[in-house]
């Protein structure tokens, strides 16, 4: 109605986005067999802010959504293949590959869903990439991968792919609690000259349009995410960095203790949603 005066061409361009100004009610069934949980009651620790948590999938166009439903259509699966190859590749001074210790990738089912996770021996919360790098340096005698680099993301995608359909279930209590609190603090801190927090966009405004973007809840259950925009897989920390930059702020870097804490906190807001990575977004 407000757009009655739009030129024909603009109206055509707007149509698909405005058709789903709210999160849609579609159901995600992966490869015609795995029913995915893309909306669920908010976990207790976010119930004061949200009734329901929703996957970013619901905020994307039908075409983009469809690409994620079948592994043959999902452009992220090529990178999973590359990750699987690396899984079996011997590297480093110890003459080992990942599979020398872990057998095949299926043995990793469920792992992705619990990360970031407290590591008792190291006395820190670790993301999946940190854990992989620990295996590489301390068990394989190989070099650590750069955070969110292509190789690291491919491995994360391969690990994630075998957890698809399982509910995100990160622990926030016990020794992880102080890191979680730090992440929560970062989530609600307004930064930059635009003075916006994660919450201003993804808690207060999800479902609305910010220029051409349909704001989702900013959940991480789909990571790594294949973005049509840059035609590659993207890590959660790189996404955080982009979002913070967009507030005209000085960002933190992928792998920083701030982003590790933020990843734990954001992941916990999606506890109960199915792991989707590699997902497809625009």
């Amino acid at each position: 109605m407000k757009f009655r005066a739009m030129t024909a061409i603009a109206a055509v361009m707007l149509a698909p986005t405005f058709a789903l100004a709210e999160a849609d009610d579609d159901t995600m069934v992966l490869n015609e067999e795995t029913e995915m949980v893309t909306k669920t009651a908010a976990p207790a620790h976010v119930a004061d802010a949200l009734d329901q948590v929703m996957s970013g999938w619901h905020f994307r166009s039908d075409e983009t959504q469809a690409m994620q439903l079948d592994d043959f259509d999902n452009p992220g699966m090529v990178f999973v293949e590359a990750g699987l190859e690396t899984w079996d590749t011997v590297e480093g001074s110890e003459d080992k590959s990942c599979s020398s210790c872990h057998n095949d990738m299926d043995s990793m089912a469920g792992v992705r869903a619990t990360y970031p996770k407290w590591n008792e021996a190291a006395g820190e919360v670790r993301t999946l990439q940190m854990q992989v790098n620990d295996c590489r340096t301390s068990r394989m005698g190989a070099e650590a991968w750069k955070y969110d680099s292509g190789t690291a993301i491919n491995m994360e995608a391969a690990l994630s792919s075998v957890s698809r359909g399982l509910p995100v279930n990160v622990a926030i209590d016990g020794p992880a609690q102080s890191t979680w609190e730090m992440g929560k603090e970062l989530y609600y801190t307004r930064t930059g000259q635009l003075d916006l927090s994660c919450a201003t966009c993804h808690e207060d405004s999800y479902g609305m349009m910010i220029r051409a973007d349909h704001l989702s809840q900013g959940q991480t259950n789909g990571f790594p995410v294949y973005r049509l925009k840059n035609a590659k897989l993207n890590g959660a920390h790189s996404r955080f960095k982009g979002c913070v930059r967009d507030t005209r702020a000085e960002t933190y870097n992928p792998g920083s203790k701030e982003f590790v804490a933020l990843e734990l906190y954001v992941a916990s807001r999606g506890n109960g949603l199915s792991v989707e990575g590699p997902s497809v977004r625009n």
Binding site: T189, R190, T191, G192, Q193, L194, D195, L196, K241, V244, R245, D246, T247, R248, A249, E250, T251
Partner: peptide, 19 residues
């Protein structure tokens, strides 16, 4: 956002560079 304000921000950046 405040369009004519230059102070009181947390981690102000150099425009959209992230720096």
């Amino acid at each position: 956002p405040a369009y004519y304000k230059i102070d009181g921000f947390t981690r102000p950046g150099n425009a959209y560079t992230g720096k």
